[in-house]
Design a protein around this nucleic acid. Structure first.
Lengths: 234, 234
DNA sequence: TCAAAAGTGTTAGTTCTACACCCATGC
DNA sequence: GCATGGGTGTAGAACTAACACTTTTGA
């Protein structure tokens, strides 16, 4: 089998925007790039797509390499291909964004990548076009979370409504009325109230909830209107 | 400048899903592939990304080559990279979808591509993973058009409300109440009523409208809720 | 004069927003 | 007993969905 002649071949990379929520603010996981060019600079976690490897598989592999996690939410953001985006050699990068439960992330024993979490408000300048990828990923996250119950991916299996509200407020950089918020969230029928309370953050304690997994899968793609017009905010 | 060693290089292609609306139903423009493999089979219009060419530029070039049109709506759908998607050689394709005014499309003099419009309901089997791309593009179009005033791109500069409704009904494969429909559309403030009527399709004639371009640009990214839950339809 | 498509208004139900007080508990 | 955060209800406004009749005019 011979290839297409006269066509220039390029490298395909995958870069991952990894979001987490620490209970207060949105964070992203960045690494210090370990090879030239731009060695030592802050960067998204990425890697080249291997021979015979599909793109989502590459993204999952790269995510697992850094975080040790599997089976997390991963969505393709899009392809970035400016000819000069990587000064060394033309490389088209397919960006994916991941939503992980930050508590599940344990610093991998050999921290080859010098990974660190950064508050989304205070991220350092990143290499190449990674800043643009992050911006697009943030926009996409807001867009999607306004309509679909996607942010649960950032929380542990058990969570409280105040925690959830804190998360939405962090994502949209605004505040919501807690009465309206809990009504809206509960009206989706996605949550199951638990018997136990979280007594960590308040004296009274807040009830834990879990996702109703079946309804979650069923309703994942419905338009649920969590935020009426996210573009209007801020 | 030397490249990254030990990495396998691949080809990057762009494929375009080109949507049009003929007044009745949604159509897409397909070509007969002019080279091996799969020569003579129906296919999306595509091409390889050239050296020093950015991805959106490649998509616009490919679209122009086939349709002669420039400055049309073009949005990246995503990257498709299954290792065996092109049997000849590994090629990652970045799919774009375009919305064009079908009346603007004139068969190019040298119809090198043997292009033809197909009703979206009756498209032939396409090569490689192009069927999957088309399916995703249809889904994306429905998704996006439910929230953003994107479908105007498919109509000429002057159009009537019944035409517009026909378009929405074609996209969502359903029918809408015309009173509610026109109220919702007009309430966006995006349309400017013209003095003339279209007397082609009815005796009484329907008023032409044009887009208010400034408001269109302003509101393009707001959440306008044209269709309340498109997932529920069908 | 009739057939065909355009245009328009009202009502009931639902959803959204704004807003304030009581509850449980640890200190 | 008081400070802290959790939990809940209501009323007015806005929006949505369902529904029918009149207008225009070419044939």
């Amino acid at each position: 089998m011979t290839g297409y002649t006269r066509q220039k071949h390029v490298l395909i990379a995958v870069d991952c925007i990894i979001f987490g929520f620490d209970g207060n603010s949105m964070q992203q996981l960045l690494i210090r790039r370990s090879f030239e060019p731009a060695k030592g600079k802050w960067s998204l976690m990425g890697g080249f797509v291997q021979h015979d490897e599909d793109l989502p598989v590459a993204a999952a592999r790269i995510l697992k390499t850094l975080t040790g996690l599997e089976g997390v939410y991963l969505e393709q953001l899009g392809a970035f291909g400016r000819p000069d985006r990587d000064p060394k050699e033309r490389t088209v990068s397919i960006a994916y964004f991941a939503l992980i439960d930050i508590n599940q992330y344990k610093l991998q024993l050999s921290n080859d990548y010098q990974a660190a979490w950064f508050d989304l408000q205070e991220t350092p300048r990143l290499i190449f076009d990674h800043d643009e990828m992050v911006k697009q990923a943030k926009d996409r996250l807001r867009y999607k979370a306004a309509i679909h119950p996607i942010l649960f991916e950032l929380l542990p299996a058990r969570f409280t409504i105040p925690q959830l509200q804190q998360l939405y407020e962090a994502v949209y950089e605004t505040t919501f009325d807690k009465r309206n918020f809990s009504r809206k969230i509960l009206s989706t029928g996605l949550l199951v109230k638990q018997k136990e309370k979280d007594k960590e953050t308040s004296k009274k304690g807040a009830y834990y909830y879990k996702l109703d997994k079946r309804r979650y899968q069923e309703k994942f793609h419905s338009f649920l209107n969590f935020i009426s017009d996210p573009g209007k905010l801020k």
